[in-house]
Every structure is written in structure tokens, then in C-alpha cells.
Write a protein that binds this DNA or RNA. Sequence first.
DNA 1: ACGAGGTCTTGGAACGTTCCATGCTTGCTG
DNA 2: CAGCAAGCATGGAACGTTCCAAGACCTCGT
Lengths: 331, 331
Amino acid sequence: MKQPTILDVAERAGVSKSLVSLVMREPERVSDASREAVLQAAAELGYRPNAVARSLVRRRTGVIGVVLSDLHNPFFADVADGIEEAAFERGYRAMLSSGFLNPKRERGAVETMLELRVDGLIMLGSMMKVPKIERVASSLPVALLGRHTRSKDLDSVGVDDSAGAQEAVEHLVSLGHSEIVHIHAGSAAGSPRRRSGYEKAMRRHGLEPRLVKGAFTESGGAKAMQEILDSGNLPTAVFAPNDFAALGAMEVIDAAGLDIPGDISLVGYDNLALAGLPRISLTTIGQPRADLGREAVHLVLERLDGDRKSARHVVVPPNLVVRNTSGPPRS
Amino acid sequence: MKQPTILDVAERAGVSKSLVSLVMREPERVSDASREAVLQAAAELGYRPNAVARSLVRRRTGVIGVVLSDLHNPFFADVADGIEEAAFERGYRAMLSSGFLNPKRERGAVETMLELRVDGLIMLGSMMKVPKIERVASSLPVALLGRHTRSKDLDSVGVDDSAGAQEAVEHLVSLGHSEIVHIHAGSAAGSPRRRSGYEKAMRRHGLEPRLVKGAFTESGGAKAMQEILDSGNLPTAVFAPNDFAALGAMEVIDAAGLDIPGDISLVGYDNLALAGLPRISLTTIGQPRADLGREAVHLVLERLDGDRKSARHVVVPPNLVVRNTSGPPRS
DNA sequence: ACGAGGTCTTGGAACGTTCCATGCTTGCTG
DNA sequence: CAGCAAGCATGGAACGTTCCAAGACCTCGT
């Protein structure tokens, strides 16, 4: 059970510990004979370098911490894939931890990461307050993802939500819609920008914005949609704040016996995998998820390696994905 | 940027490093005056214990590694929640890494975990070969989840897949079905047991098992369903190996203009969140996911603390969730 | 007034690496 | 054949903790 150390290997190979260390790190700088001896001894003993000791002396762990607010959100899973991928390519490892949609637990997760001395931190859909995150950023590079900030200390990468919302509206308008309601998610991360994009595009076409408050959840979307139906003033299209909310709205519309898109068009946001299921087939706004993750890694490593000091805020454009929930308005 | 160490705190507080260490670990054993001084100095400096150094001397990291084969599988996300929860309660942290559905990359993830000297390892839906995993288990406690094994070195926790499959068949038979096809996923983790449970239950009712090979994916389910339709011999019910496959089958059935459950009943396995969506509403077999995770942590810590030596294989029962894709057979 | 016993506190040796300055061989140059 | 560079190998210090044996200081009973 006890793991062999570099000293055990050195002894068995008849060389010094320094040489073993060198073989592990830069084998080409060691003579063939020594290298073979060390490698063989290591294999025989089942030696595995102790990353803990290495991190201690190097003062680098080679680990990028990722705190994601919710493991179940497939959006984060895609982003995390991009992160792991990019980190791996650059010789780093990613270590994930969940915040369980709870700011307190998220804080705990961050604290743990700091104690473990991760080299950089990526926060996915964080629920913590910006000043708190800024304090964290004073001891290591931090990149915020899926949330906008103008902070001078924090890097961020996000999608241009306003542009995405405008695309959604443009799409509906081009189909002939003029009564387009937007369900918004209050001040939840991302919602204000989507809302302002919606309003901007509506006004550009001389249309009257109509807002209903919902949330980024299925039930939030359902509640809002019910409110719309109950108002007696049925719009020809609904633009939801995300796919989950759209799903909730879809259920309510179905239950009311209305047809999508015959009676009402529906557009979501996020392009979750489930939006592509044939029975759902939701028109929505897609985001280059894995790219977001890669970009975040990039930002962190940029600070780590080249020590850039000023914050960078990367914004990538979204794209419209047309499916079967949007069509011409009912006549 | 440079982090303060225990020595900095000691100096500022005018005490020895040992005392600072003690305050951090067992504050009650230190005099009030010293404790206050140390705590204040630590706060002023923004001191944060270095877990790397601590792990080195303790020869324990307090981290449980979790390698999951796929971050996107919501099943794993639920299990991982249970793991993080249980680990936290016991004073451990969970560290996640994805294997990207690729045995080689999974091996890399495991290797990384070992180098980081995690105290225990939980493998979710591993794609590695059992002997390889057993070799890993010789240096730390390993629990296998979502996969069965009789290994003498490995602990495992799983759902009784055979029982679940039998429940599915019983349900269909009780509705009056006798022509029930099972799409199986070959030798993929879990499939053989589901298949044998299916066969067992069929025979118990004097029915002829009919198998079609598919996979644990949407496309695998679609392909198999297409084969069933093309055979010209339409069964009255289909039992898929998991919900994704059921979804694929559902699409094909829809596309063929057949009604579910009017023309054909469909039962999945896993009870994913999407199976509960009104438009999907899939009858399926549910599993107590978070409990599986908790149980795995339990097994690992049992070995870690009490040094149990023999393997334990925990099996928990599944439960049938009836929704709208199952009904009486067409007449 | 002294020793026993208790409470707090301390210095130093680990833990398993990396990194650096230095040393030992060779072989080559002039 | 002295001198020196190149190539390889080495020992020791450092990284920031924990843990332990032992020291310092009190209090109290006799």
C-alpha cells in the first residue's frame, strides 16, 4: 500500500535521487544507460511521481479549478468539456467542483480550491457577488464565464446576449410577427442583456415591447406563459429567456390546446441538446459552448504565463438555430 | 500575489509556527490570548493554509477523486451530487474529472488522480477493463459505480438491473402485452443484466424473448427501432436499454406515423429528467441516483478509516415509473 | 520553599519533490 | 601534455506544513 518514492527508485537503480527526478522531467538530458536503469527500476517498483510534493516545491500545481454552479445544466457540461480539453492541451489539468446553486456552498468550493492552490480559477455561472470574486482574483487569475462584468480585476468570457436576443426578434419579424412577448428572468445572470436586446430590436421595427416576468426554469416559463394566456391578449410569438423556460411555456401552450407554431411561435435561448429532440424541436439561440470554455482557459493561462495585468472581456457572437417552433403568425 | 505562510503569521502574532498550526487545527487547545493574536494576524495577512504542504506531511489529501465517463449524462450528474454531498459531510472534498467516453483518456484521468494522491477513487460508468482497475485498487480504495463486478479487490455499488428489467416486463405483461421486444446494448455496462432480467421475466410468463441489438444512445435506439419496423413483424411493446435509446426509438416510431402507446408501448430505463417532460412522458425504470453516490463514498471511507479488506458489492433496488408511453396493446 | 503536576508553547525533524551550484570524467585543442 | 569545455551526475537546501518530545511557566500542597 505504501507508495515508493523517488529515493526508492534511486537506490534500486544505483543513482542519486536528483538523477531520477531528471529522468522523470527531461529524459533526453540523461545518458542512455542511466535512463534505462532508472526507467526499469521505476517500472519494477510501480513508482508514480508524487504531485503533491512536486507542487510544493514548484509552487505550481498545474491544476485549473472550475467551480460550476450546477452540474445538471448541460450548458455547463459542454463548457467544462471545452475547458478540460484546452487545459489538457496546455499541460494543465482541470478540477471540477459544484456550487449546488447555492452561493454559500459555492464560496466553500472556491475556498477549497484556493487551499489546494490551484493555479487559476474559472467560474461557471457563478452566484457569488462580484466584489467577493474580485477579492479572490487578487491571489490568482480568475475568469468569469456565463456572466458579464466590467470589472477591472476579473477576466470574463461571454456570449453577446443582446445580439442573440436581437437575432431572435429579427427572425420572428422576418416571419411576419409583430406581437412578440418576451418572458424575462428578472435580474438573473444574462437576462437583463437578453431583455435589452429584445427591446432594442422591437423598437427598431417600431414594435411595442411586451414583457412578462418568468425565470430561467421550466416552472418559471410555465407560470409566465399561463399569465400570458390568462391575459386574454394572445401574442403571435413568445421569446423565452432560455430553453428551460421555453419548455415550460411549451407545456402550457400544449395543455391549452394551442398549436406551435400554428397558433403561436416560440423561441428559446441556449440550444440545449434537448431542444434538438424531434418532439421538442425548439427554435433557439445557440452558443459556441466548448469555445467559451477554451477561451476561459486561454485567459487564465495568459495571466499565468505572460502576466497580463489588465482585465480582458471576451465576447463571442451567438447564432440562431431555426427549428419547428417558429413559423408565420396565425392569420 | 505571494501568499503568506504560517511563518508570516507566526512572526506577526509573535508566536511560533507550531502554535499557529495548532490554532488552525485545534483552537480550543490554545490560550485565549494566543488564539486571538494568531487569528487576528491571520486575518490581517489574509492567510490561507496551504493544503499542498499539509497533504505532504499528513500523507492524506482529504480528496476523493471521481472519474466519470461522461459529464453530459445527467445520471452521472445526479450521482456526483450525492458523492459531493456525502464526501463533504465526512470532511472530504470531491474532485471530478471526465473520461470523455474514451478508455484512454479515462486512464489518463485516473493516472492524474493517482499522482495527485487522492485518498480514494470512485469510478462512474467506467470504460476501463476490470483488471486494470484492480491494479489501481492496489494502491488506494476504489469503488465502481454503475457497473457490476464480482472482483475481490474492488468495491461496487449498483442497481439491480435484472430486477429493473423484470419490473418493466411485468408492467407490460400486466397491461396485456405478449409481444415484447427488447433492444439491448450489447456488452456495454449494465446491458447484459437488463437483458437477462428481460429474458427471465419473459420465460416466467411463457413468452418468447425477442432481441434486437442497439446501443445506449439515441441513434442506437433509433437504428434498432428501424430494424424492428423493417422486419414487418411489429411487436406491441418495446423495452429499450435506457432512456436515450428509448428516445431514439420514439423518434422512429413517430416518424413512421405510429402512435405511442396506441400502436406500440415503449419503456425506457434510467428515468432521466427529460423522461418526465410532458411531451416525452416516458415510462421507465428509476434509480435512486444520489443514494448510489452516497453509498460509494461510504464504501471508500470504510476502507480508508476502518481498513476493511474484503470487497463489498452493494446493490440497491430500482423502481418503476409509469408515464404515458405504456398502455394496453392494440387490439 | 520545593517539587509535582498541569497548561502552554517551542524548535526541529520529517514529508517527497525540484533546483542549483558544484564535482567528476572525458576528450579535444593547441 | 596542460588546460578547458562539454556532458553527466550529485548532495544539499528549499517548499510550507504537521507532529513530537521537551521546555517554560504556573499553581498548589506540604
